[in-house]
Amino acid sequence: MATEPPRAPVPTAVTAPPPAAGAERRRLEVASLSAYYGSAEIVRGVSITFRDREVTAIIGPSGCGKSTLLRCLNRMHETVPTAHVAGSVSLDGRDIYAKGVNAIEVRRHIGMVFQRPTPFPTMSIRDNVAAGLQILGRDKPSRAETDHIVEDALRRTALWDEVSNRLKDSAIGLSGGQQQRLCIARALATRPAVLLLDEPTASLDPISTQKVEELVYELRRDMTVVIVTHNMQQAARVSDRTAFMLMGELVEIAATNTLFTTPSDSRTEAYITGRFG
C-alpha cells in the first residue's frame, strides 16, 4: 500500500482510466476487527486483506460471524441497535471507521447484496436500478445518463434481454433469480469499488444460482468481490481465495485451490471434509 502514490479524487466520470498494473493490489484491509452485539463478541480480532480484482469467499459454519464480518466492511453492522465495532477497516489505505468519514459515503463505495432479494416494491425495474443514483444531489446524472447506466448495469447482470421491454413494470413481477440479479445491478449502478455478497444464492433455485455465480465470476474483472457462503462448492467455483472462519475467528485464508486441497489448519480440514459444521 505504501508503495502506491497518493491519488487525487476523481470526479464521477462515466469512463475510468485503465486499472493500475499489478494484480496483487490491496483494496480492503481489515486489522484486528472485533464486532459486538451488546457485550457479545461475534467477530474476534480478525485481520484479513481483500485484493483488487479478486473474489474472496468467506466460509464457515452458521453463527461463525462471517455475515457479521461482511456487514462490518461497509458499516452496515452499526445500523443495528447495540451493535459496535473495534479495530479498523481500510479502503485504499483510508480507515472507513475514522472520525469524519461518513458511513453513507462508505456504503456508496462498498456495495452490498443480501441473502433474500430486496427490490423496492414501489419502484419500477428501471427506478430500482437507478435508486442509488437518485441520492447524489448535484452530482445526480441526467435522465439520459441514468438510462445508460441502467442499461449497462442490466447488461452486466445479463438481465437486459429479459427486462428491456418492461423497464417501467414493477420489480415485484420478476422471478426470485431475476430479482436478485436486479439487486446486483442496483448495487453496480453506483459503481462501487467493492461488492459484498451475503449468501446471495441462499434463496434461489439451481439455475438462478448458476447465473448469479457466472455473474460473480465476471465481476472480478474490475472490482473486489467478497462473498459469504455456506456452500463450499460455491466458494470453490467462484472464488480466487477462500477464508475459513470459526467461532468469530479467522482460522486461515489461502488460495481457494490450496484451502480445499491442502489446508494448513486441522480445523479447516475437519470442516471441509464434513466432520463438523
Binding site: 476523481v10 469512463t15 475510468a16 482510466p17 483510508r94 459515503e105 442499461e151 449497462d152 459503481r191
Partner: peptide
C-alpha cells in the same frame, strides 16, 4: 455507449 466500470482509483472517502 460509455462502458460503466468501477473507479479503480481513489475512492474519495469524505470528499463529498
Amino acid at each position: 455507449r460509455p462502458v460503466v466500470t468501477t473507479r479503480p482509483d481513489d475512492t474519495g472517502l469524505g470528499a463529498r
